[in-house]
Amino acid sequence: MDVVDKIKISIFVMFSLIMAYAGLMAYFEGLNTLDAIYYSITTITTVGFGDFVPITSNGKIITAIYVLLGVSIGLYTLGNFADFFIGGYFQKTKQLKIMDKKISKLKNHYIICGYGKSGRVVVDKFEKEGIEYVVIDNNIDTLENELSNNPNFKYIVGDATHDEILYNAKINDAKGLISSVSNDSDNVYIVLSSRRINPDLYIVAKADEQVAMDKLLIAGADKVVSPYVIGGLRMAELAVKPGILDFVSTFMSIAKYEYDEDLEIRKIIVEDGSELHNNTILNTNIRQKSGATIIGIKKENNLITNPPADIVLDSDDILYAFGTKEQLDSLENLAKKQKKQ
């Protein structure tokens, strides 16, 4: 329960106790309403001016019980106020205001629906890449805890199947959406809603069941990922071709942990009017300019692995390149259309 709710409840209980005691004193001690309320307040605050004292036996018994309850509730209320002021409530409120301001300025960002195991991996990757994002999830405790540990974390509490929540995440200004909630049917609904609101949105969805993969594609997802299918294929490859996968994994692990180099494979599209367009790999000096290695080229429906240096790169060719983030970023710039001066 939130500290503000605790304060509200304790104040309500204290007010109810004061009024109940005042009513009983008016009945048993014959006090008028104003004097009864005054006596009730001075008693619960332990001020005790001595101008009123219970005379009847019932009044004395009720007063004894009232003092014990009143002091306990008063201490509880003070403790909640201390938690409110000293426990960082204002700091949390300030954090939330800063976060809301950041969300209001988001453009070309990604919306991550669901902050479970998959969502956490996506957020970690985006944090390392410096990609703007906002998370949508129902678990407020998990989200608040993440924000307290990471001031750059941005979230919206709510159900991503509701359009208003997607609008709050600025879906019309978003570049992409990743739907990774735990329920396949919810993922389908989120994809349908997101595609209807923003037809240009790039959508990646998670599917636990293989039967849901086709439904998500029909709903409008650009790509569908099944952790179980990927995991199964990985295990099959390790069983049949352990040497190749072990080599790639080992190579990347050594690069990361011994040389602090993050190596990855990226898909890059050659744009019309770019430096690479209508040029060969040899003439463009891709290796010298970017440092990245081209391991494959997809021309329409043909995939060319280990492409020759004299192959001509056309617009919409897809390059599969291997290298560090900086090297791949450099290659991506070469593949983009050159701006006119």
Rank of each mutant, 00 (worst) to 15 (best):
D5I: 11
K8L: 12
I9P: 08
I11P: 04
F12I: 11
M19A: 08
M19D: 06
F28D: 06
F28K: 09
G30D: 02
L31M: 13
A36E: 07
Y39M: 02
S40Q: 09
S40V: 01
V47W: 13
D51Q: 09
T56F: 05
I62W: 06
A64N: 12
A64G: 15
I65E: 07
V67F: 01
L69R: 00
V71K: 07
V71S: 04
S72W: 05
T77G: 02
N80F: 08
A82K: 15
A82L: 14
A82M: 09
T93N: 13
I98Y: 04
I98R: 10
M99V: 03
D100V: 01
K102I: 00
S104N: 10
S104E: 11
L106S: 07
L106G: 03
K107S: 15
N108P: 01
I111H: 02
C113G: 11
G114L: 01
K117Y: 13
S118P: 06
S118E: 09
R120S: 15
D124T: 04
E132R: 05
D137F: 03
N139D: 15
D141N: 11
E144C: 08
N145W: 04
S148K: 14
N149G: 13
V157S: 07
G158P: 05
D159L: 00
A160I: 02
H162T: 10
Y167M: 08
A169K: 00
I171M: 04
D173R: 01
G176L: 01
L177E: 02
S180N: 12
S182D: 14
D184P: 12
D186E: 12
D186C: 05
R195P: 03
P199V: 02
P199H: 09
A205W: 07
E209P: 07
V211P: 01
K215Q: 11
K215L: 15
G220H: 03
K223R: 13
S226D: 14
S226I: 08
P227Q: 00
P227R: 09
V229C: 06
G232N: 10
G232L: 02
L233A: 13
E237W: 05
E237C: 06
V240K: 10
G243Q: 15
I244E: 07
D246F: 09
F247R: 12
T250C: 08
K256T: 07
K256F: 10
Y259F: 15
E261G: 06
I269Y: 02
N283R: 07
I286P: 03
T293N: 12
I294Y: 13
I294H: 11
K298F: 05
K299D: 11
E300F: 04
N302S: 09
L303Y: 14
T305Q: 09
T305H: 08
N306P: 09
P307D: 06
A309Y: 13
D310A: 04
V312L: 15
D314S: 13
L319Q: 06
A321I: 08
T324Q: 01
T324M: 05
S330T: 14
L331Q: 03
E332N: 09
L334V: 02
A335T: 01
A335W: 03
Q338M: 11
K339V: 05
Q341W: 03
Q341H: 09
